[in-house]
Nucleic acid binder design. Sequence first.
DNA 1: AGAGTGATCATG
DNA 2: ATGATCACTCTC
Length: 206
Amino acid sequence: MPRPLPRTFYRRDVVDVARALLGQRLVRRLPDGTRLAGLIVETEAYCGIPDKAAHTANGRRTARNETMWGPPGHAYVYFTYGMHHCMNVVAGQRDEPVAALIRAIEPTVGLDAIWPARSSARRVTDLCSGPAKLCQALRIDRELNGADLVGGADLWIEPGPASARPRPAQIAVGPRIGIANAEEWTTRPLRFLIRGNAHVSPPRLT
DNA sequence: AGAGTGATCATG
DNA sequence: ATGATCACTCTC
């Protein structure tokens, strides 16, 4: 059985982490032992203090974003719009509040348990094609904020099959989704996705 | 394009 | 305390 990616995977530049996450496998173990998993196909990098679109922009440090200030390799899960959760992985170093948002996965394990959690989905490609959708599908909520992804308790990331990992030319890059009023950071190319993968969120960035 | 939904955050 | 905002999703 594969082991979780090591701490060193996360302890580096957040843009490198966001790119290297593509093709890796996100795994969730439910309280009853059921295993759910999918291949990461889309991410975004949030670059910390200078990044005007990040929760930690300008050095903001609050109860919500505290996890981003901690050591790398932990999950930063936050609640937004009164109903949605989004999951990030903390990268960089302690006190360097950067994180990579997981925006979409291609579900591969536990589909029978994922469908009922995503009642509005009509196609497989609607199951996890967005940051809040995949949290619904894998039952990721604030209880998992701060979870150590390297410990491998209930949530971790393990190496994906070599065939799933994109070569650099297969990675499409574009501006992050849902960002406004962040000046030059609004349009910087910090969104990464596997070109041609049907499970990414729109826009697909041919 | 608009509604839904409530925690979070900067003001004061 | 209060009001605006929000790294979104669904339905029309």
